[in-house]
Design a protein around this nucleic acid. Structure first.
Length: 595
RNA sequence: GGCUUCGUAGUACAAUGGAUAGUAUUUCAGAUUCCGAUUCUGAAGAUGCAGGUUCGAUUCCUGCCGAGGUCACCA
């Protein structure tokens, strides 16, 4: 049963009966803690049809509901707010419905498909803190849609082409002495990153040298031998030079292997990878088609442009005068290719930082101009930067937080605290390690996901590894504690069944609160999907755990002599643990049975 | 400068136009013969400034102040 829905219907009936008019919008909200009741009807908007003041309106609606509705047991009026108490028997029914539904929170397949793109890093640098937010967000949004019954395709685009990878290649060729991940023991992405840095250093030195010889800056930047080598390599790559292609394949292969290790640890996955080197040609073709159809135009120098001034934007270049493609070109190709590969998807979600908002606005407009209806269903899941207490992350200042290192630190700290406080006596070394991994990554993911994606956020490493308070481990701990209760119940042969709930007559306030929360789960999921915001799920899981802890603290479960109550509390604890586990799984966070 | 996002306790985050603005952390004061104290209870502490719309504004509108982002034949 859907309590919310039923209550709305009853209120509608009351309003119609009392005021001879129906109302389409009812403002129903959770009751503030300081007042009695669980649901509150805001009565100010009703005064228009009730022709009474807000308080009087609330009073008559309340009285009507109390006598005519089986749902409402009590009410009180504060100013224009009608606070309703739902009878315990109704709460028990709500719980019963959830308890007997083995697939609670798991929607039926809708037959709808969407695509979620996330990660999509550059191949010349290792993953950092910003990528963590990206990956966790994209993964979580995909999981949330899955939970609502969508078929979700997780993909990413790999920028494997272009001058940036050639820079690493040039430096490796000059200074690498044949170094490989195997020979150096370095992760592939770290190794390639090292040579990217190496390139930068050598390049700067050469520029300085040239400038000292009297070459002007702009000229020096072009003349520097290592840059010339990189540019030459790019040209050779485009001419499909065999040696260059081999080197390119090798170095990219190292990066991918390194990334795979990191993805695995993050717990994220992809159904299909798209490579820029495979999509930019399609993009080019589409742009030329656009010229033929007159939606784009060519300038005298041969460059191709789109005019978006009527849309309030400006003109954007789509092909350079030499005919080569730009970033936008390949994004056009990639989008189209994806809809060809997965014709049933109704839209795509692009998980990309907010510095590219303008880019995506333009991209979607262009796709629309090319006649693709689905352009309207493309969404840029734009998220804010992650700042450090010291300010922005800047590679130049060496303040970039490496993803692998951060995960190591989090897990290490979790291991330390687990050894101090954990109930790990009976665990094997392997189990303790797995637990630390679960807690460390849980802390990290929760920290990054609890904030509204759209907002810029602060990441304080010292604070993030705190395992108390508004954190993932707090929720994990609550789950472990419930599991402990369930183990005890089992050992005492307390096995509740749905039928047992019939004998339950009344509830404690803290029990009502928890049922109220559990009952919100589906709504929260829908809200999270609509807003593309895992933060809603994260905060929900936290609130649920908090409510349960209050119950836990005030009610000693096994002291209960009434078997109906005892069985209910075990069932109720089971459902809470399951709901916590499900919600956390949507965030990519595992929860332990013991910790 | 144009466009755009954001300013909430010391700090970090919440709040479909609704009540005395929630939570965490910090500080202080409490709770364990009882199921796991990484827990719970209590206290202290905030909407940048000035207007407007509204019965009601953290939320919508305008201006100002402050902080980001973006405006490449870069990605």
């Amino acid at each position: 049963m859907n309590l919310e829905q039923s209550l709305r219907t009853e209120i509608q009936k009351a309003v119609t009966a009392l005021f001879n008019q129906s109302v389409d919008q009812l403002q129903l909200q959770p009751t503030n803690i300081e007042f009695e009741g669980s649901h509150t009807l805001v009565c100010f908007p009703l005064t228009k049809i009730s022709k009474k003041n807000p308080e009087e309106t609330a009073r008559v609606v309340g009285e009507y509901l109390q006598t005519h509705s089986g749902l409402v047991s009590k009410f009180n009026v504060v100013k224009g707010f009608l606070n309703l108490s739902i009878s315990d028997s109704v709460w028990v029914k709500v719980f019963e419905a959830i308890y007997s539904d083995v697939s609670f929170g798991i929607a039926k397949q809708l037959g709808k498909e969407i695509m979620v793109e996330y990660s999509s890093p550059n191949t010349n640098k290792p993953l950092h803190l910003g990528h963590l937010r990206n990956n966790f967000l994209g993964y979580s949004v995909a999981e949330i849609y899955k939970a609502l019954g969508y078929t979700v395709h997780k993909v990413q685009i790999i920028n494997d082409r272009g001058i940036h990878i050639c820079k690493s290649m040039a430096a490796w060729k000059l200074f690498g002495k044949g170094e490989t991940p195997e020979s150096s023991g370095l992760k592939g992405d770290k190794l390639v990153g090292k040579y990217y840095v190496e390139f930068d250093r050598a390049y700067k030195g050469q520029c300085k040298e040239l400038e000292a010889q009297g070459v002007v800056k702009e000229e020096a930047e072009k003349q520097a031998p290592i840059m010339k080598l990189a540019v030459q390599m790019l040209q050779q790559w485009e001419q499909k030079d065999k040696e260059i292609l081999t080197l390119w394949n090798n170095m990219n292969g190292w990066v991918y292997a390194g990334f795979d290790t990191t993805y695995k640890r993050m717990g994220v996955d992809f159904e299909k990878l798209y490579y820029e080197s495979n999509t930019y040609l399609l993009g080019k073709k589409e742009v030329l088609r656009g010229v033929e159809q007159g939606v784009f135009f060519k300038k005298e120098d041969g460059s191709v442009w789109v005019d978006l001034t009527t849309e309030g934007l400006d003109q954007k270049v789509l092909l350079r005068s030499d005919g080569t493609s730009v970033y936008m070109t390949q994004d056009i190709g990639t989008a189209i290719l994806r809809f060809r590969d997965f014709p049933k998807i109704e839209g795509q979600v692009y998980t990309v930082g907010n510095e590219q908002e303008y880019h995506f606005k333009v991209l979607f407009l262009i796709l629309g101009k090319l006649g693709y209806e689905w352009a309207k269903k493309c969404y840029h899941l734009s998220y804010g930067m992650v700042d450090l207490p010291t300010g922005k992350m800047k590679s130049r200042e060496g303040t970039v937080v490496d993803a692998d290192e951060l995960m190591d630190e989090m897990v290490e700290e979790a291991a330390k605290q687990t050894r101090e406080l954990g109930k790990i006596d009976e665990m094997t070394e392997q189990e303790v390690n797995d637990l630390a991994e679960m807690i460390g990554l849980g802390a990290l993911k929760f920290f990054l996901l609890k904030v509204d994606p759209k907002k810029r956020m602060m990441f304080d490493p010292a604070e993030s590894i705190q395992l108390q308070g508004h954190t993932g481990p707090f929720i994990q701990y609550t789950h472990a504690r419930i599991k402990s209760i369930l183990r005890k119940a089992e050992s005492l042969n307390i096995n509740p069944e749905v039928g047992d709930l019939k004998n339950l007559k009344s509830l404690e306030p803290s029990e009502r609160e928890v049922i109220f929360k559990i009952n919100q789960y589906t709504n929260k999921l829908q809200e999270a999907a609509r807003e593309y915001s895992p933060a809603i799920v994260a905060n929900y899981a936290y609130e649920l755990a908090k409510e349960y802890n209050q119950f836990y603290q005030t009610i000693p479960i096994f002291n209960e002599s009434d078997p109906a109550k005892l069985k209910f509390r075990i069932a109720f604890s089971q459902v809470t643990a399951n709901t916590i586990q499900r919600a956390m799984a949507l965030l990519g966070i595992r929860v332990p049975d013991k910790m």
